[in-house]
Amino acid sequence: MLLPADSEATPQISLVMPTLNEEEGIRECIQRAKNAFRDLGVQAEIIVSDSSTDRTPEIAREEGAIVVEPDGKGYGYAYRYAFDKARADVIAMGDADTTYDFEELPKLYELVANGDADMAMGSRLEGEIKPGAMPTLHQYVGNPLLTKFLNTFYGAGVSDAHSGMRVFTRDAWEEMGCETTGMEFASEMIMQAGAADLKIEELPIVYHEREGEETLESFKDGWRHVRFMLLNAPGYLFSVPGMVLGLFGMLLMAGVAFGVPGSSVTLGPNTMIAGSLFTIVGYQVASMGAFATVSGDPIRKPDDPVTEFVVERLSLERGATAGIVVGGAGAVYAGYLVVTWAQSGFKSVPFTVASLLAFTAIVIGVQTVFSAFFMSAVASSR
């Protein structure tokens, strides 16, 4: 059922396995994949993307697999390199450590081959996890939490975002446009698929204990996933937190200026100072969402109306003008305070709500002017 690299026939499915010293499990994985292809009645190819120093590539060739050696490093790069070599219109992927039973491939393949999904995934969390197959922390904290992040930020709608058993069409792969080289590649596929509105379907699978030495570094690799997800969702990282902080700050300042409706609580100078700080910090954080969107090409661009307006309509001239107006208004009142201070013989000037409002406006105005120039410089350099 396996076609060699020089075969004139075109395989109906290409299975890609990345390997790094998997001599203990590679043979069983290939044999199970052969059984799956036999059950499906399709011609296939197995591409082993190998960076091993043990007998993994020799065993793979003995079993009829095509072995390629990536010219770069990383889990994601090994997949990307092999996907470019794949000849079939349907591509499957999975680890070669016996954790995934490739005899379960047919049900995923049929979802894709029948047009019911652009990408079909095996869900370990909805299926069965054999004792010892997955650390408790991964099963009940790590994987569910990372999946929740992906579903919230990217609308993926999956139950097990980091399952390594996946089947997808070549068209879907090309539409994803993945670029990462490390372990975050697994997240990027789902993020890109969600952003491209590709149809993802899941079926439960059994997850087995691995053969050979574990190469995953839980916290380091987990952080790489989280970091990549956050950097590609500036709306959630910057815009939303910034607007929440800024709104909270303005509410505090309004509470000092006008009082708290229906309450006997009296807010004083310290609350006013805190409100000013929250407003300034919130404004700065929210502006970073616009900077990140303009300077890069995030997978999930901010979709709140404020950031969209800033990115799409705010020019250097408009931004600088707005900053001058806001800062200028504050500067006029600050100038009045300086004159009053001088006329009093430079005696202590009492604190007023208006004075702190004025200085807050000055800070935000100056930030707006320089931010407008910075955004213009970044946009012109792209």
Rank of each mutant, 00 (worst) to 15 (best):
T169P: 06
A96V: 04
A33I: 04
F359E: 11
N114E: 15
G94W: 07
V378T: 04
F83M: 14
A233K: 07
W173D: 09
A286M: 10
V306F: 14
P4A: 11
N270D: 10
R382E: 04
Y81F: 14
E317R: 14
S52L: 03
L231K: 07
M191D: 05
P241E: 03
R38I: 07
F309S: 07
E8R: 14
D171K: 14
G177S: 06
G122F: 14
T266C: 04
G194K: 03
S163C: 15
K34S: 09
E128Y: 11
E58M: 02
A120T: 14
L198W: 05
V378M: 13
E8N: 13
E174P: 08
G323Y: 11
S376L: 00
V366C: 05
G249Q: 04
V244K: 06
K347R: 13
M17C: 05
K107F: 09
A161D: 10
I59W: 04
M250I: 11
P241S: 10
G319R: 06
R170W: 07
T360L: 05
E62H: 03
A92E: 10
G41P: 05
L40A: 03
P70Y: 01
V226G: 02
L252S: 10
G345H: 14
L316Y: 01
E23V: 05
V112N: 02
A286V: 01
A372Y: 01
G345F: 09
T180G: 03
G323M: 09
D297W: 00
A65I: 05
M1H: 13
V285W: 02
F373R: 04
L198Q: 07
R170N: 06
V310H: 11
L237F: 11
G177N: 09
Q139M: 07
R27E: 14
F346C: 07
F248S: 09
T352D: 08
